[in-house]
Design a protein around this nucleic acid. Sequence first.
RNA 1: GCGCCUGUAGCUCAGCUGGACAGAGCAGCGGCCUUCUAAGCCGCGGGCCGCAGGUUCGAAUCCUGCCAGGCGCGCCA
Length: 560
Amino acid sequence: MNILQETKRRLAAALRDAAAAARAAGELSFETLPDFVIETPRDKSHGDFAANLALLLARQARQSPRNVAEILVRHLGKPQPGVARIEVAGPGFINFILDSRWFLPVLPAVLAEDDHYGRSNIGQGIKVQVEFVSANPTGLLHMGNARGAALGDSIANLLTAAGYDVTREFYINDAGNQIENFGLSLEARYLQALGLDAALPADGYHGEDLVETVRRFVDRYGDKYLDADPALRREMLVRFALEEKLAAIRLVLEDFGVIYDVWFSEQSLHDSGAVARAIADLDRAGYIYEKDGALWFKATRFGAEKDEVVVRKNGLPTYFAADIAYHRNKFERGFERVINIWGADHHGHVARLKGALQALGYDPGRLEVVLMQLVRLYQGGEVLRMSKRTGHYVTLNELIDEVGRDAARYFFVMLKSDSHLEFDLDLARSQTADNPVFYVQYAHARICSILRLAKERGMEVPPAREARLELLEEPAEVELIKQIAALPETVVGAAQALEPHRLTRFAHDLAGLFHSFYTTCRVLDDDPELRKARLVLVEATRITLRNVLHLLGVSAPERM
RNA sequence: GCGCCUGUAGCUCAGCUGGACAGAGCAGCGGCCUUCUAAGCCGCGGGCCGCAGGUUCGAAUCCUGCCAGGCGCGCCA
């Protein structure tokens, strides 16, 4: 049910017919009809829909836009269904003012579709993968990862709602230098735990959490690896720590409402030979050369700023090499579109990865990277720098404890991914009511409260067919219905643009319209007919609000 | 130095891929609870859309050049 888009489509067709008729009548001359839009004007006084066709046609027709608009309106001929009035306004817009009853059919549709309301099938079941967070499993998740988690999960929800077949994936960086370094740090902590004087590597992991991890390792294995081969010792420590860290990451993400379909190991790509194969194939295609003892990929051929090493002088493949193999693997698994959520500090990686995929014969457009600016954390008015190596960072675990999952998720997706997120920890900690998520949730709780009371009084929400919905003609009611009707196109737009922040905006607007309605209209009215109609409206609002909140990964509480 | 992102009300941010007089939330001021949750509603004030050019019937939005902030330019990931 998408009454808005259907109406727009029909009006657009009518305008095209009108233009053709006007040309046939010799009143308007043009070669080809320009692509015009029918949009919902910002300003309510401009009607429900506005068309800019006359403005675009004016030049070709060599007439003033307003004249063109008048001619088009005249040729629209018989009254359009649902349209109460048509006006030519401003520079030459054609405004359509709809009969307020035109939107009423959306209410029974919402009740019927229930938790499916807002879904569509523009994705046509196309397989899409969303890879996000993919943090190093060497510590806990920080604020940047948290933003990625909220963003990635909401985008995945949006794509699912738009009819795509979505897979959520976490890429585990369990290979390479960082792991090597991780092992050395663990080893030092291990020796320290056994009372020896061992120093952490200068660029090692200084976080306190490793001390605890090693303590648990000692609980299990004691000093068994004190005199063991250091390589074996580190391998055992790393294996133990990775398992523990990954379990913790998985757990906190679940607390955050994020469940992955696939956890993909980087090491497995090395083990299976996929990395070596990718390099060999690039070489065969002529995009690899040797310099200074290392193997380089000719990324500059594909618009990157510089070429990139794939195999180091020491013979070990780079992270980039593994990433090439990984993304090829994604396509081999049948994903039509592959979406990565990355921190903006990785943006330099985009061009060369796309280049490598192109070199392997894939359309690089199938890889879409959503770059998010990093989260800046404020405390006591000062910026806190976050770094895993210094162990100085606020974890997602702490964030959930202090501000709660709902507020955190809402805040992270409230902004465009492009914009820097300023997270004032003191403000977030202070659980005050100026939190927008409370505003939206409160609207939902208020509705549930009304419905509870109605039930107690034996006044359940009637089947929509039995309600005289045409009684809903207060401005606050009409505005509320229009916003409810706008959910499907909002979801589609947000999914296409990969912009979940459009949903928080929609939710906030919807909540605001409900609050206004609440103060002007009494739902449990003495008039039984009006009461039934309003119960249907309120129920439809509840469903819409809840569905949006769920797309955001935020709960819809029944009481507050 | 080069590349990417950002610059809109005192603060935090929207602005629907070029539309009609630039919007919201906080903060400030003034009203509204004997009736379904006042975590709410209604009203008021507040802006050279970083600056300067250009394209267009029309620019916060597109192009160019500056200015400011963030990030990147590793045989790290």
